[in-house]
Amino acid sequence: MSKLYLTLLLCISFCSVFKTGDRKHLFIGLDSTMSAGVRGPTNLFGHPTDQLLAQIDSQLSQWDSEKGKPITKISFGHFPLSFSALSHSQKSLKNVFLKHSISAYLCGHLHTRFGKNLKRHHQSNENFLSSHEFFQLNMHQKPSESARNCSSQAPPLKEFWEWEMGDWRKSRAMRIMAVDRGHVSYLGIDFKSGTKKTFVLPTFPLDSRFMLTSSFHQMYECQHMVPFSFETIRCIVFSISPIMSVVARIYDTRPGSPHLIMETTMTKFVRDVSRGDIYAAAWNYKAFEDPSPDRFWLQIEVTDAMGRSTLSELRPFSVNGPSAKISWTWKEFFVMG
């Protein structure tokens, strides 16, 4: 694993670029609160200005111009997009994010009052009915049916995830996000349910419920993915105790109930950083190609020196791109749909 380099840039509210090997990671923070005025109820919504949107657009355009250089773009701000007003010229943060195909927008504000499953997949598609501009019933928007374009000059597919992060102050909730060779994933942690000695975040294969479906599918079908990024199962482990073993298990649900079809020991990467350890295991990813997004499920077990066992969430995965549906509760739909 390569060293991590950080470059700070002058932009909007906060902007930084990390470099790992030949890939860059751009993080843009934004502040859409009103510059002056009373507090509630006007602070219930974010008010991005045309100037702010122009600055974000300009900053992202700078990195879009570097063709052939892989970059992952993440933005973060306080307000969910459903709580962000249009600018004076009727422009929105959502349109800017779609234009530049960021991977994810991280937000807060709602403090888990409406649930801990506040996520929404946004995608631009000219064939959608106008109602999709205002609401969607499923957390994961229906993927585009447009023809595959594998040209190196083809424009990127316009989609991104919005992830509400909960809050630490009252809910004691947090998320750990990982960017693994361009693949973005996260782990939700709830300390109100008790403290844990070990956390495990699978970083590949991606959870088929929360990945960028159209982009991932095109990348796989057009063979634009970096081969070695598919050739191993990977995870990050955080623990207060030395780790003795990490085992990955894959289950097949086709017969109706999950049955174990693969079990393999994962090996630790030797790195020169102290936060979290990366484990990997080789596998034949092509053996898991399937039109169903939730036929195969992954779970990772970590055992520490005290003999304590920690299991990751059993989750579906898809190596070739189909997405598994996941629905909101009515409260979640009310604020995110």
Rank of each mutant, 00 (worst) to 15 (best):
R181G: 13
N138E: 15
R181P: 00
V226R: 10
F128V: 07
L106I: 13
H224C: 04
F114N: 12
L110T: 05
M165P: 02
E133V: 07
M177K: 07
R169N: 11
E231H: 05
Q136M: 08
A104L: 10
A154K: 02
E164C: 00
L137V: 15
K197R: 04
L118K: 01
E133H: 13
Q223L: 13
P205K: 00
T213W: 12
F199Q: 00
D167I: 07
W163Q: 06
W168Y: 05
Q218M: 04
L206P: 03
K116W: 00
N138K: 09
E164D: 10
N125M: 10
F160W: 01
S124I: 00
D167V: 04
F134R: 13
P202N: 09
P155I: 01
E145N: 15
H140E: 13
K192P: 04
E133K: 10
F191D: 10
G166Q: 08
F134K: 07
F191K: 02
F216W: 13
S144K: 00
A147I: 11
R169Q: 13
S171V: 11
S193A: 12
H111A: 08
A178C: 02
Q136I: 13
M174I: 06
Q153N: 07
M225Q: 13
D167C: 09
L106M: 00
A147M: 13
T213I: 04
M177T: 12
H122S: 05
M174E: 07
C107L: 03
Q123T: 11
Q153Y: 11
A173M: 14
M177W: 05
F228H: 12
S214D: 11
L206N: 03
R169A: 14
F135T: 06
F128H: 08
T213S: 15
K197W: 00
A154F: 01
F160A: 06
L106K: 04
S229G: 09
K197S: 11
G108R: 04
F210G: 10
H140Q: 14
N149T: 03
A178F: 03
E164S: 06
M225K: 02
Y186N: 08
Q123N: 05
T213E: 14
H217Y: 12
G115Q: 01
S144M: 11
G194W: 03
K170G: 08
W163K: 04
S215R: 14
R113W: 12
K119G: 05
F204I: 03
E231C: 12
